[in-house]
């Protein structure tokens, strides 16, 4: 179980190999890699800059990963999230989950991605021909996170909008 927040790129094959090394109980490894797309919201982007809140990012990713490990019997897991300036085609995020059988690894990887999209304090700013634009959060990402809580009342409550 590990999390890393870094500006450097990562090597999926090397990370996968290192994560499962020496554990022959593992029969299934799922990796998810998120990439920067050249089109965002119908508009061409030349780059994306990810800002984050370092102390809280580490705490939230550790919490999200602990939730996945409570819920599924995972032998190993890893989250790497990059920050800083990234260009189309570059890798942003890596999630690896490993378990004896595939179902737990598949489900946990999807859960980790859905949760980190709505709970980890990162903000994307896209560089377009019209200038720089902050990306707005998507309601569909909240919905994707909510589906994991429907049959799981022990989950932390959905983030509530702060009202003055």
């Amino acid at each position: 179980m590990a999390i890393r927040v870094q500006s450097e790129d990562f090597d999926v094959a090397a990370e996968t190999k290192a994560l499962v090394a020496g554990n022959t109980n593992i029969g299934a490894v799922v990796t998810f890699t998120g990439l920067v797309r050249e089109i965002a919201g119908g508009e061409a982007i030349s780059a994306m800059t990810l800002e984050h809140y370092p102390d809280m990012t580490e705490a939230m990713l550790a919490k999200i990963e602990a939730q996945a490990n409570d819920r599924w019997a995972l032998d190993a897991s890893l989250i790497i999230h990059r920050y800083g300036r990234l260009e189309p085609g570059e890798q942003i995020v890596l999630v690896i989950t490993a378990s004896p059988h595939r179902q737990a690894a598949f489900e946990a990887a999807e859960f980790l991605m859905d949760w980190l999209k709505t709970k980890a304090p990162f903000w994307k700013q896209e560089a377009t021909v019209d200038g720089e634009k902050w990306v707005a959060a998507k309601a569909s990402d909240d919905d994707a996170t909510d589906r994991w809580t429907e049959n799981f009342p022990e989950s932390p409550a959905k983030i509530v909008v702060a009202k003055g």
Partner: peptide, 23 residues
């Protein structure tokens, strides 16, 4: 993450930001 009714006191670190867009 805090709700509007959560307490704040001197010495706290309070952060303000838009909905997150990582991943």
């Amino acid at each position: 993450f805090a709700h509007s009714t959560d307490p704040v006191k001197d010495g706290d670190e309070v952060a303000f930001f838009p909905p997150v867009t990582g991943g």
